[in-house]
């Protein structure tokens, strides 16, 4: 799948809905388009799925140019929209069967496939019910099952788990991972950072119609300067906290060191050692830590944090203190997003 310098301009609009966007998605890759509402994600997907005509540029889905040959392109992909567009006059099983019939799937194959998918998606008991009787999460599952009826090479999902409860969300994530393992290319639009981080191989961040960044979630978060932290939990006590902080702050690669509010022992942030964000608020220096319990110092690092553990431990040993625990803080995709667009998503 490929878009090259694609532009969508609507009449009487000041700015382009999609403005000179290019990217390529490999076969079997899970690609996420992140962005706030109105960023141009849906329009981009619309152009890749033949529903929006590009003003300029080229879009190729499943190896077929969507502008030159939309009919053939439609055999290669399937779309799972955010809101249900299931056929309300048909049972969900018939929804699957007729979808396959539209795509020319042989009668015997479509019956077998429909039953297998209904089974896999936990819908077989209600196969004869009409779509009106299903919840949002169930409709989402039905639409994914329907999309798979003609074995598409590329699957587009528009905010696949928005509004789903956590269990339904995990279920959808598992199915999507299985599909990716089977070689199906997935493009999902989302404004859920967790979803993007959990599912995607690469992420494109869009705003105001432009593609602002495109990389793996890890690389994107790594690209943020000074957002990595190394937090040291120190046993023992010292009256000279200021000196200690100054010594740690002079280590190579440390931009700044500060004392943070000590937490109850073992009271880690949810998410464990890689949890993002500040674990505690900075506090006036030289007050706590002298009570013999625990001292916490956070180092803001410019490069990678782990290589700093040994030098930091050396400084502590020299001061007669013991390193009890460390915590690495990495910036999240959300931080990347705010850095790029200057606003939060939700």
């Amino acid at each position: 799948m490929r878009v090259v310098n694609i532009v969508k301009r609507y009449p009487n609009m000041r700015i382009n809905a999609v403005d000179d966007v290019s990217f390529e998605v490999r076969r079997g890759e899970v690609f996420g388009l992140l962005g706030p509402n109105g960023a141009g994600k849906t329009t981009t997907v619309g152009m890749l799925t033949t529903r929006v005509k590009p003003t300029e540029g080229k879009a190729v889905t499943g190896g077929v140019d969507v502008v030159a040959d939309p009919v053939r392109a439609r055999t290669r992909f399937a779309v799972v929209p955010q809101r249900s567009n299931l056929d309300r006059s048909l049972s969900i099983r018939q929804n699957l069967l007729f979808h396959a019939a539209y795509h020319g799937v042989h009668a015997k194959t479509r019956t077998e496939r429909a039953d297998a998918l209904l089974e896999q998606f936990g819908l077989i008991d209600r196969a004869t019910d009409k779509p009106d009787f299903f919840s949002g999460g169930q409709s989402q599952r039905i639409m994914i099952a329907r999309a798979l009826m003609h074995s598409p090479a590329v699957l587009f999902l528009d905010e696949p788990t928005t509004g789903l409860d956590p269990a339904a969300r995990l279920f959808v994530w598992d199915r999507l991972r299985e599909l990716a393992d089977d070689g199906v290319t997935l493009l999902l639009t989302t404004h859920d950072m967790d979803e993007a981080a959990a599912l995607t191989d690469r992420v494109g961040i869009m705003d105001h119609g432009k593609l602002l960044a495109l990389d793996t979630p890890e690389a994107l978060t790594r690209s943020l300067p000074g957002r990595r932290t190394l937090e040291l939990a120190i046993a023992g006590s010292t009256a000279r906290v200021d000196e200690l902080i100054a010594a740690l702050g002079e280590l190579d690669g440390v931009e700044r060191a500060e004392q943070v509010q000590g937490q109850a022992r073992g009271g880690d942030m949810p998410g464990g050692a890689m949890a993002a964000g500040p674990p505690g608020a900075p506090m006036p220096q030289g007050e706590a830590g002298a009570n013999g319990q625990e001292l916490r110092i956070r180092l803001y690092v410019s490069g990678e944090a782990p290589p700093l553990v040994a030098p930091a431990a050396t400084v502590l040993t020299a001061a007669g203190l013991e390193l009890r625990d460390i915590k690495l803080g990495a910036p999240s995709l959300e931080d990347v997003f705010i850095e790029l667009t200057g606003r939060t998503l939700r």
């Binding site: 799925t49 033949t50 529903r51 009919v71 053939r72 439609r74 055999t75 399937a78 779309v79 929209p81 567009n85 299931l86 056929d87 309300r88 006059s89 979808h99 539209y102 795509h103 020319g104 329907r146």
Partner: peptide, 9 residues
């Protein structure tokens, strides 16, 4: 509902 038919080949 028409979307599924508009995306048929």
């Amino acid at each position: 509902e028409i979307e599924d038919r508009l995306l048929a080949p």
